[in-house]
């Protein structure tokens, strides 16, 4: 079947099989930041934005993205580096395999929530598993990043 999807601002038209999931389609398109960590929609590694909202690309058919705009970390390099620097300054990326999905969700959170509390942050990001860090350094990074954003654009 033919689909037309905008990926990171560029339009693609492709003939795909109906069972192709968005995750595999995006990797075929060279978006290697999108990772698979499970088969059960539990880990959050494959998080991308569909029309600006975070979704799990492992459990979203590429066909459903027809006519929509998908953004991966490849399309948000500046924001990724900006928040990523806070994460790196905590050593909170560790193996880095969960970082892209986690960062996609952090960036979605920042757009969606104004001045989130710690509980709201943890709730919003709870779908992003990480086995290395125990989450503490990630939380410190998010808080420092939010404080920085406040300073820059209060």
């Amino acid at each position: 079947m033919l689909i037309t999807v905008t990926i990171n601002g560029k339009k693609y038209s492709d003939d795909i099989t109906p069972d192709l999931v968005l995750l595999d389609y995006l990797r075929q398109k060279g978006c290697y930041s999108v990772k698979r960590g499970c088969e059960t929609s539990n880990c959050g590694l494959c998080t991308v934005h569909l029309d600006g909202k975070p979704i799990l690309s492992c459990s979203y058919l590429a066909a459903r993205a027809d006519g929509h705009a998908v953004t991966t970390l490849e399309g948000l390099q500046e924001e990724a580096a900006e928040f990523g620097a806070f994460l790196a300054d905590q050593g909170g990326e560790q193996c880095g395999f969960c970082s892209p999905g986690f960062i996609m969700n952090v960036l979605a959170m920042v757009r969606e929530l104004k001045n989130p509390t710690e509980a709201e942050i943890q709730e919003y990001l709870s779908g992003n598993l990480c086995r290395c860090t125990g989450y503490q350094s990630q939380l410190r990074a998010v808080k420092n990043y939010l404080a920085h954003k406040q300073e820059v654009q209060p």
Binding site: Y32, S33, K35, T72, L73, E74, Q77, A80, A81, F83, G84, A85, L87, A88, D89, G91, E93, C95, G96, F97, S99, P100, I103
Partner: peptide, 21 residues
């Protein structure tokens, strides 16, 4: 010292640096 990892920025910007990539 709290030194940033040398590969940190490539990891947080999602560069294709793993076996599967």
């Amino acid at each position: 010292a709290p030194i940033r990892k040398k590969d940190a920025m490539s990891l947080v910007t999602g560069k294709p640096v793993y076996t599967g990539d």
